[in-house]
Amino acid sequence: MGFLRDKHLLGLAETPKEDIELILQHASSFREVLDRPIKKVPTLQGKTVVNLFFEDSTRTRISFELAQKRLSADTVNFSAGRSSLKKGESFKDTARNIEAMKIDCIVMRHPVPGAHVHLINYVNSVVVNAGDGTHEHPTQGLLDMMSLLEVKGNLEGLKVALVGDIKHSRVARSNIHGLLTMGAEVMLCGPPNLMPVNIENLGVSMSYDIDEVLAWSDAVNVLRIQRERQGVSYIPSVREYRDLFGITHERVERLKEPITIMHPGPINRGVEIDSDVADSENAIILNQVLNGVAVRMAVLYLLLGDQPKAS
């Protein structure tokens, strides 16, 4: 069972190029399904997927749920707040209890990096990472690549900038790994105190000059900014952030060549990105949302489907 090298999708750091290509190919076929009047295929009929969310994320959950429904899988949602879990049963017990109900796949969102690596030790189900703390969010990385591929035709040699809070961003990490695997170039930009140490060791370049970065890039992926994290303030003010790193109307106007604008959402309009930039014709933010469903269908199909591989 499963058409990918690994049984699970835990992160793009360990996903080989062939598998990313396969996922993206299938995603674009499923994307066609989504444009049909009847947006449903029987591919995963009889399979049960649990969306296990230890952290609220309505958008990601809905996207996964839609993907599961479009594939005719049975889906169950399980939300566990961190506090209730800490008081009660152990993580291992939660996982084993859910699996005891005879399920095929767990899609998990968890606030702790690496939680999925622990999960696969305790269950036999296929595990899909829907975001683990500040580590990875592989389906977001895949949908970003799919959206880029749609407008650019190729990822090889593409220059992609990631702008914002890189340190706390699982989206950034998945994008970095995925894009580098696919042969793109990645440059990071953001406040130095939100840059993780030794990030260059992952194979990316870095600049603190947003204008220079935008001039270099073919596409920019703008990360959501939060002023404060766990009681620590990293950004003195929203105004200052916008001045130094915001994707503003003026900055985009000044560019010689237009660039593709992406954002994983939800957007802070007027903070990390100006409203009219987010709504401009070069912005593919809503395509990203739709492609999210298609990519998740592809991932679930390739991990859970038991049809023989099409030759």
Partner: peptide, 19 residues
């Protein structure tokens, strides 16, 4: 240290664990 979980370095950056 803040909410650091492991040594801050290339590994913490890769693993996404607070350094």
């Amino acid at each position: 240290k803040l909410n650091g979980q492991m040594h801050e370095g290339t590994w913490s950056t890769r693993l996404g664990l607070a350094g």
